[in-house]
């Protein structure tokens, strides 16, 4: 998705996702209900992922969705659920006439966009996918991430593993069932 082909479409999407990310982040910090806040955070994550993809960092974009919007947010919501913090009546933020109108407008806009793209003169025929590794001989999209990770950032990478080990050990120590000595 380069900006040289469709500059208008590119900048439209940049502002769409950028504003969406900012608005969702604002909503995230102002919500009272933790569940609603979590949902807004997921929206922020998705908008950021879209921005990453627009910057040609597809791998980071996919990771953003998988790791942040997926795994981490599930844990958040899970904790909220276990602590029983959410009240069902407060979850929905899209209430009232204007809320519905804006939500409906966004939905229709995105739908119209997809329809417009299918009618576009762009060549959308199915092509045999090219294996990324053969594109430029450097390991494709992921090679750009993996190469530096194991060369320039090798130490940082290894230190992160120690950091995670410390975090796990700490969590186990604090979360362990109280021993006989503690129960005294």
């Amino acid at each position: 998705m380069g900006n040289e082909f469709l500059p208008l479409l590119y900048s439209f999407h940049f502002y769409l996702f950028g504003l969406l990310a900012i608005a969702a982040a604002l909503a995230f910090v102002t919500r009272k209900s933790p569940v609603a806040a979590a949902m807004w955070l997921i929206t922020t994550m998705f908008a950021l992922a879209a921005l990453y993809v627009m910057m040609d960092a597809q791998f980071i974009g996919v990771m953003q969705v998988l790791v942040y919007a997926g795994a981490i947010m599930v844990v958040f919501v899970f904790v909220v659920m276990l602590l029983n913090l959410g009240h069902p009546s407060e979850i929905s933020d899209i209430r009232g006439k204007w809320g519905r109108l804006i939500a409906g407008f966004l939905g229709i806009a995105l739908l119209a966009e997809i329809l417009a793209l299918t009618r576009d003169p762009m060549d959308l025929r199915l092509v045999v996918p090219v294996i990324p590794a053969t594109v430029n001989g450097t390991g494709g999209i992921i090679g750009g991430v993996a190469g530096p990770l194991f060369r320039e950032y090798l130490l940082a990478f290894e230190l992160t593993s120690i950091l995670l080990l410390i975090a796990i050990a700490g969590a186990v120590v604090l979360g362990r069932k109280r021993s006989a000595a503690d129960a005294r």
Binding site: I162, L163, I166, A169, G170, L174
Partner: peptide
């Protein structure tokens, strides 16, 4: 972070 996380615990 390595230092801080250990010290938090």
């Amino acid at each position: 972070e390595m230092m801080s996380i250990a010290v938090y615990v």
